[in-house]
Design a protein around this nucleic acid. Structure first.
Length: 429
RNA sequence: GGAGACGUGCCAGAGCGGCCGAAUGGGCUUCACUGCUAAUGAAGUGUGGGUCCGCCCACCGGGGGUUCAAAUCCCCCCGUCUCCGCCA
């Protein structure tokens, strides 16, 4: 959630951000109006309440007839206090709804526009030239089937469309990838975490996923629990309502979990293979940092993601996502998209977002305000949160296709071999 | 699944419907004292919001209710613990 005081003081910044996102600008003025209504209603209630409190003290010490007289008088006051309180609560609720519906303010330099208006920052590695090598690459599903590693048919039989079995060497490859990702994260100071994948409505709402994208989320009616689409949900909720000590640097967690997505609006899209599925695994970085450190942490996360892509020996490009494609919480987002040979396209493998103080405000996660020499002074302020992908099941698509051989066997990237008992090649069955 | 107990500040732990934002002890910070440490003494030590910057309002797991007035009484929810049952 955005900072209302800042919005009041600098509305143009917020209007510009909304414009860049191609979102409604008028919400800025609506919030300012609702805030002023809220404050005047609150003032009315509080002064009446103060009066009532003062009366209450008199009533407490009065005796007999005097007490009875005071009671009659104060009874009327109690009525107006109640009414003023209702009005004040109402104004607060209205303002809150508006504020919560507004997206984060973008960071400087974020490209304006929608999904296709991203800026390409760089290309790393050359896409493998199968033409020059003289053979037609197979897609990841063909490869998966040839090696006995992916079974979509039985996935559909057991669970329906967009479900799959990973078997044998491909199953091992996924575990190897995730373990490498976790070890990399640990070496960068992240504490490994295995998180709950079912969360309560409050947690889901707190992370901002229950808004526009609520139809993407599985909900268990019987128990009123949600299946998470990423461990970010649990990791952000982890320190909810807490005051953190960031004086020794960022607090970093690497979440390992299954992720569940309904893929509601994507019928007919990516129906082949495991590119877009209802359930997959992911190792996710999540950092709590001081506001001043957020931008630097974001650059670090991007660099760590690129290191992982290098270890998987993939060619990719890095894009700077446009404002309209950021999602509610992010102020800036970088995606790394790997080259998928049979699609002739770059597909997203990682995504790292700087949510600045947006999530922390909503979840009430703060730190003591650092004073001179780093010692905490009076007061608190929200922290910044960031997240980024270390590895997901989808990586298998790019790895299988990129490292395939003419017969359909697949060479295992060197960095993954120690996690596969030294296996160098996934053979055709 | 059944029965019961409990949830108060950084921690432990009191709390009669009004004098309770909350006793007491510990911790922490500052000061004093003592060669140093320890000990001792004194003061301070929650969060959020509003503000005419004097103060004022709210918060005792969460949400409702009763009352002129709720940490305190009533209801619902969440959580923790104990016992019984069930499953492994």
């Amino acid at each position: 959630m955005i900072d209302v005081n800042e919005l009041r003081e600098n509305p143009d910044l917020f209007r510009a951000s909304q414009r860049a996102r191609m979102a409604d600008e008028s919400i800025v003025d609506a919030i300012i109006a609702a805030d002023s209504t809220r404050r005047s209603a609150l003032n009315r209630f509080e002064s009446l309440r103060a009066e009532q409190n003062a009366f209450g003290k008199k009533v407490a010490v009065a005796k007999g007839e005097e007490k009875q007289a005071l009671l009659v008088e104060v009874k009327e006051l109690a009525g107006s206090v109640k009414a003023a309180q209702a009005e004040s609560d109402q104004a607060k609720t209205e303002q809150d709804a508006l504020v919560r519906s507004m997206s984060n303010v973008i960071e400087p330099g974020v490209p304006s526009g929608g999904e296709d208006d991203f800026e390409t920052l760089r290309h790393v590695g050359e896409p493998r030239d199968f033409g020059a090598e003289g053979f037609e690459p197979k897609d990841h599903l063909q490869l998966g089937e040839l090696t006995g590693g992916i079974d979509m048919e039985r996935g559909a039989k057991v669970s329906g469309a967009r479900f799959y079995f990973l078997k044998g060497m491909v199953a091992r490859l996924e575990i190897a990838l995730l373990r490498l990702a976790l070890d990399e994260a640990i070496s960068h100071g992240f504490t490994p975490m295995i998180t709950p994948t079912l969360v309560r409505p409050e947690t889901m709402a707190g992370t901002g996923f229950l808004g526009e994208h609520s139809d993407e989320i599985y909900h268990l009616e019987e128990d009123d629990l949600y299946l998470v689409g990423t461990s970010e949900v649990a990791l952000a909720g982890y320190h909810g309502d807490e005051i953190l000590d960031l004086s020794n640097g960022p607090v970093r967690y690497a979440g390992w979990s299954s992720c569940y997505r309904r893929e509601a609006g994507s019928h007919g899209k990516d129906t082949r293979g495991i590119i877009r599925v209802h359930q997959f695994n992911k190792v996710e970085m999540f950092s709590y940092v001081r506001i001043e450190d957020a931008e630097a942490e974001h650059q670090r996360m991007l660099a760590w993601e690129e290191e992982m892509l290098a270890k998987a020996e993939l060619s990719y490009r890095v894009i700077h996502t446009a404002a309209g494609d950021l999602g509610t919480s992010a102020a800036r987002k970088y995606d790394c998209e790997a080259w998928v040979p049979t699609q002739g396209a770059y597909r997203e493998l990682t995504s790292t977002s700087n949510c600045t103080t947006f999530q922390a405000r909503r979840l009430n996660i703060r730190e003591r305000i650092p004073g001179e020499g780093g010692a905490a002074t009076k007061g608190t302020r929200p922290v910044a949160t960031l997240n980024g992908t270390m590895a997901t099941t989808r990586w298998l698509v790019a790895i299988l296709e990129t490292h395939q051989q003419p017969d359909g066997s697949v060479i295992v990237p060197e960095a993954l071999r120690p996690y596969m008992g030294g296996v160098k090649v996934i053979p055709v069955l």
